[in-house]
Computed example of a mutant assay.
Amino acid sequence: MIRSGLRMLLALFYLGAGIMHLVSPRAFLAITPYWVPFPEAVVAITGVAEIAGAIGLMIPQLRKWAATGLALYALCVWPANFQHAIYGLALGEEALGWWYHGPRLAFQPVLIWLALWVGHVTDWPFRKSH
């Protein structure tokens, strides 16, 4: 019950983020590291990937693949989160402080694990003994 509820919540999170990547890419372009080629295309593709992952989490036959993809995605975008934090890039009118960036950076491994757990890729640390 908890796993399915968190799966739905994670799917909604990624669906919303994916839509924002497509509808309002400016904020995502601002935190894209300079070494990423074709940043506009990358932001659009990552938005589509988030939407596809969100949908895939809700389809049992695709769940493990979607969860693995979202976990890898969260790992791959981590450099953008670091760039955002280190350079204090503004989103909108003002820059966000470490009260935002610290927890966000620390939560990224949890987000990776959560995708794998809700997608039934892992049962760790809740594995039942046989």
Rank of each mutant, 00 (worst) to 15 (best):
I2G: 03
R3K: 14
R3V: 07
R3N: 06
G5W: 15
G5T: 04
L6Y: 01
L6F: 15
L6G: 00
M8K: 00
L10H: 01
L10T: 03
A11P: 05
L12M: 14
F13D: 01
F13Q: 02
Y14M: 15
Y14K: 06
G16T: 04
I19N: 01
I19Y: 01
M20Q: 13
H21G: 03
H21T: 02
H21C: 08
L22W: 11
P25I: 08
A27H: 01
A30Q: 10
A30K: 14
Y34E: 11
Y34D: 11
W35N: 07
W35K: 08
F38D: 07
P39W: 06
P39V: 05
E40I: 04
A41T: 08
V42D: 02
V43N: 00
V43R: 00
A44Q: 02
A44I: 03
A44Y: 03
I45D: 06
I45K: 07
T46Q: 10
T46M: 10
A49V: 09
A49P: 01
I51W: 10
I51A: 06
A52N: 00
G53P: 00
G56E: 06
L57M: 05
M58V: 03
I59K: 09
I59F: 14
P60W: 01
L62D: 06
L62M: 12
R63A: 06
W65G: 12
A66W: 12
A66Q: 06
T68F: 14
T68L: 13
L70A: 01
A71R: 01
A71F: 12
L72Q: 02
L72F: 15
Y73P: 05
L75T: 09
W78N: 01
A80H: 12
A80T: 09
F82W: 15
A85C: 10
A85N: 10
Y87I: 05
G88N: 12
L89V: 11
L89E: 08
A90Y: 04
L91P: 00
L91K: 08
E93V: 13
E93C: 11
L96D: 04
G97L: 14
W98M: 12
W98F: 15
W98E: 09
W99E: 11
Y100Q: 10
H101Y: 14
H101P: 07
G102N: 11
R104N: 13
R104L: 15
R104Q: 13
L105T: 06
A106M: 15
F107G: 08
Q108G: 02
Q108W: 14
V110W: 14
V110H: 09
L111Q: 12
W113A: 03
L114E: 09
L114C: 13
A115C: 15
A115D: 08
L116V: 02
V118W: 07
G119C: 03
V121G: 07
R127A: 13
K128F: 04
